[in-house]
């Protein structure tokens, strides 16, 4: 029995077994998740003032479901996310292949330009979009659904596809160029080599990049907030306006749904980006 509790003595570099470090990390992990967990748990709380638990209910989910404008905002956000994911995955993959494959003058400057949407403050990009769509192109108001969402979608593509490019580019950095040469050596042409050898290797990066683009688009508040025209409603903007008034279980319920979607997608993306076991060192 005692064997179970016997542990090897700590080495000088066994920092991960220092008790105070473990307590510290555990406390931080709890603090990181506590607010989100309470949000999720109290979305099932049968009370409007959600500090005290008054019993389990799903009525706020029903209420959220029956809130037409909330549902409309949700559908809009999903539509924007799907559309921008498709476009930004294609654009991002093309850029990634270009950066992986070719050398050209000012390549470093070009890469820096591609990274700009990632690094500049969101608020700057947000107000730029506001100015662009309201003063230059005009909002696609009055266009048929889903085309009335095209302004937000275009903005989302602009800030998501550089992320996709980075993810795919990082994946391709591990590609053994001899695989490509082997394929050609065995008689395959460029096209066959791309689809039979390069793309299968690239695929996890493409999927991870697409999931990333989807979550980024779904999560974005600031840019969407500024890009939404007078009457396009998106989920974060709707939640924002609800939150400004009060904390209600209905918002908790809607948020919980979004949290679950993002967490699942993120977990899948992380799995795909994990080091590939099929690779030969």
């Amino acid at each position: 029995m005692l064997e179970m509790f016997k542990r090897a003595p700590q080495g000088p570099l066994d920092y991960s077994r220092r008790l105070w470090l473990r307590f510290f990390a555990a406390a931080i992990f709890v603090l990181l998740y506590l607010p989100i967990f309470t949000l999720v748990i109290f979305s099932f709380n049968d009370s409007k003032r959600n500090v005290v638990w008054r019993g389990f209910t799903t009525k706020y989910y029903e209420k959220a479901w029956n809130n037409d404008s909330l549902i409309e905002a949700f559908v809009n956000s999903i539509t924007i996310a799907v559309a921008s994911t498709i476009v930004s995955t294609i654009l991002g993959a093309m850029i990634a292949i270009l950066l992986w494959r070719f050398r050209f003058p000012f390549k470093a400057a070009y890469e820096g330009f591609m990274a700009l949407p990632i690094v500049i403050p969101e608020i700057c990009m947000g107000v730029a979009m506001l100015a662009f769509f309201s003063r230059v192109t005009g909002y696609p108001t009055g266009w048929m659904w889903p085309f009335n969402l095209s302004a937000i979608t275009a903005a989302h593509i602009a800030f998501t596809f550089p992320f996709v490019a980075i993810v795919i580019r990082a994946r391709m950095a591990g590609f053994n160029r001899e695989l490509e040469e082997a394929s050609k050596d065995l008689g395959a042409n460029e096209w066959q080599t791309f689809w039979n050898v390069i793309f299968p290797y690239m695929r996890p990066g493409v999927v991870a990049g697409a999931l990333l683009a989807f979550t980024l688009s779904l999560d974005d508040f600031v840019i969407t907030f500024f890009t939404s025209g007078p009457d396009t409603l998106t989920f974060p903007v709707k939640v924002y306006s609800m939150v400004r008034f009060s904390v209600t279980p209905e918002v908790n319920a809607a948020s919980t749904i979004l949290v679950i979607i993002t967490v699942v997608l993120t977990l899948i993306a992380m799995r795909l980006q994990a080091p590939d076991k099929t690779e030969v060192a």
């Binding site: 989100i36 949000l39 999560d219 508040f221 924002y240 939150v243 948020s255 949290v259 993120t266």
Partner: peptide
């Protein structure tokens, strides 16, 4: 990866 708005709201 969880929505900034939701985390702030929490």
């Amino acid at each position: 990866w969880i929505n900034l708005l939701i985390r702030t709201y929490a």
